[in-house]
């Protein structure tokens, strides 16, 4: 069994700041991490491999320094790693990203056919959740998004049964291999890397492919040129002009504060009281 896990290196978004004057993203000095959602995909893949045998290859498209994330994944137990890096990939939107990753997966599969491709649910920077379905469509893989659990995998009959989060409930789906799974967060607990894996990872060579080496057939479909979406403007959200009106609390008991709060809310919006009465009566 051969599983490919797509991971993206992202800035730790809790630390992203916007330049107050130019309104551009200040990436300098912001630490990068493996997209947290992708770790659930990686863990699920490793568990399948541990149970059924086979191999897990991690794949990323990004700048040369993205090899750091791949090395971390190797340290957690992945067997092989591929980095797609090329200036032609720069500025990719999701359509161009899925094009490059699909090419990479096809190439990886030449050596050993791929049974399952995993991605995270979404990233924490671009945050579109579009790349998974994009890869599936390009490679003709059966698409399983928002997967909460894998119920069974039958390599002989090339079939898989999963639980998929849908609106209002869980779908139990069966489909054929090869398939693409986008894994839901919180579905498993990431392992700690084993000492020998970490040791192996620190010395592993990571396959680094240019667009051409990845077997991309049309360079015009990569990067900025291959991206139909154009980001025209990036800006920080406007702060609200007024700050909150504060309820006076000094010297008051809790009950008096609560009373004052109700008076404030209801005098500002008398209709709210009518609405609340209706709701309270209905419940």
């Amino acid at each position: 069994m051969h599983i490919v896990v797509c991971i993206k290196q992202v800035p730790d978004s809790a630390q992203i700041r916007v330049h107050p004057v130019t309104n551009t993203i200040m990436r300098q000095g912001v630490p990068t991490i493996i997209n947290p959602y992708d770790l659930f995909a990686l863990e699920e893949a490793l568990r399948l491999r541990d149970k059924m045998g086979g191999k897990v290859t991690v794949l990323t498209m990004g700048p040369p320094m993205a090899d750091e994330s791949l090395r971390k994944a190797l340290g957690l137990g992945a067997d092989a790693a591929v980095l797609l890096t090329d200036r032609f990939f720069a500025g990719s939107d999701t359509l161009a990203t899925s094009y490059a990753l699909a090419a990479g997966i096809r190439k990886i599969g030449e050596e050993e056919p791929v049974d399952i491709v995993f991605t995270g649910k979404q990233t924490i920077d671009g945050d579109t959740a579009q790349v998974g379905p994009g890869i599936a469509k390009r490679l003709g893989l059966n698409q399983l998004t928002y997967v909460a659990a894998i119920r069974s995998l039958d390599l002989e009959n090339r079939s898989i049964v999963v639980e998929r989060r849908a609106e209002g409930g869980v779908q139990v789906l069966s489909t054929g291999l090869p398939c693409l799974i986008t894994m839901l967060e919180g579905t498993n607990t990431l392992r700690r890397g084993a000492m020998d894996d970490m040791f192996r990872a620190s010395r592993a060579t990571i396959a680094t492919w240019s667009a051409q080496q990845a077997g991309v057939d049309d360079i015009a479909l990569c990067g900025l040129r291959g991206s139909p979406t154009v980001v025209k403007k990036v800006f920080a959200p406007q702060p609200r002009k007024e700050k909150a009106k504060m309820v006076e609390t000094a010297g008051k008991s809790d009950a008096e504060i609560a009373q004052a709060t109700l008076d404030t809310l209801f005098s500002a919006n008398p209709k709210l009281e009518t609405d609340l009465r209706k709701l309270a009566a209905a419940s």
């Binding site: 939107d93 999701t94 359509l95 899925s98 671009g126 945050d127 579109t128 959740a129 579009q130 790349v131 998974g132 379905p133 994009g134 599936a136 469509k137 390009r138 698409q143 998004t145 928002y146 991206s227 139909p228 979406t229 154009v230």
Partner: peptide, 18 residues
């Protein structure tokens, strides 16, 4: 989201999320 990503990829057009 499941549907839009597939359709946009087949149509090879842009899709702006969320």
């Amino acid at each position: 989201r499941d549907l839009a990503g597939s359709v946009a990829t087949t149509l090879k057009t842009g899709l702006t999320a969320d």
